[in-house]
Simulated assay, not measured.
Amino acid sequence: MAQHKSAEKRARQTKKRTAVNRARRTKVRTAVKSLEAAIASGDKAAATAALKKAQPALDKSVGKAVVKKRTASRKLSRLNARVKAMA
């Protein structure tokens, strides 16, 4: 347990930040999962719409340091390629 005031404050801040980051990460995962489901269903219109929701979610998570920049870029690139490849 923290003994100093500053350490107690850091513990409180960490707890808050962890909760916020967990929520942000969940939003990103949900957006990506809905895109994956749209791709699996074979509906290109739905997949395109889901991609338009997933892209800003991933970009925002990069800005908030929840996901690394290259990881988000790689995910978006691969998902975009899969949407484009749909007939």
Rank of each mutant, 00 (worst) to 15 (best):
S61Q: 03
Q55V: 02
Q13H: 10
Q55M: 05
G42F: 13
A11N: 10
A57F: 03
R70E: 10
G63M: 04
R78K: 15
K53M: 07
L79V: 05
R12Q: 14
A54W: 00
S6D: 11
K16I: 14
K84Q: 13
R25D: 05
R12E: 15
T48D: 12
L79P: 05
A19T: 13
V32E: 01
V20H: 08
A54N: 01
E8F: 09
V67I: 13
R17G: 00
N80S: 15
A49K: 13
K68E: 07
K75M: 11
A31H: 03
A40L: 02
G42I: 12
R78T: 14
S61M: 07
R82T: 14
V66W: 07
A7R: 09
R10C: 04
G63W: 00
L58C: 03
L76N: 05
K9A: 14
S41Q: 14
K60D: 03
M1V: 06
H4C: 03
K69C: 00
L35F: 07
Q3T: 11
S34T: 02
D43N: 15
V83W: 00
G63A: 08
K75V: 12
L35Y: 05
H4K: 15
S73C: 00
S77E: 09
K60R: 14
K75N: 09
R24L: 15
A47I: 06
A38E: 06
R17S: 11
L58R: 00
G63R: 11
K84P: 01
K44M: 08
S41K: 15
V32Y: 01
K44F: 07
M86K: 13
A57T: 08
E36A: 05
T18S: 12
T48K: 14
K53N: 11
A46F: 11
A85T: 01
K44E: 08
T48F: 02
K27S: 08
K52H: 09
E36R: 04
A46Y: 10
D59G: 03
A19Y: 06
K44L: 09
A40H: 02
G63V: 00
A47D: 04
E8R: 15
V67C: 00
V66R: 03
T26A: 12
Q3N: 09
Q13S: 15
R78P: 02
G63H: 06
S61G: 09
A47Y: 01
H4I: 08
R29E: 06
R10F: 05
R29I: 02
A54E: 01
G42C: 13
T26C: 02
S61I: 03
K60F: 01
K15V: 11
V83M: 01
T48L: 13
A40I: 01
K9N: 11
K75T: 14
H4P: 00
K52M: 04
K84R: 14
S77A: 14
V28Q: 00
M1I: 04
N80E: 12
R29G: 04
L76S: 05
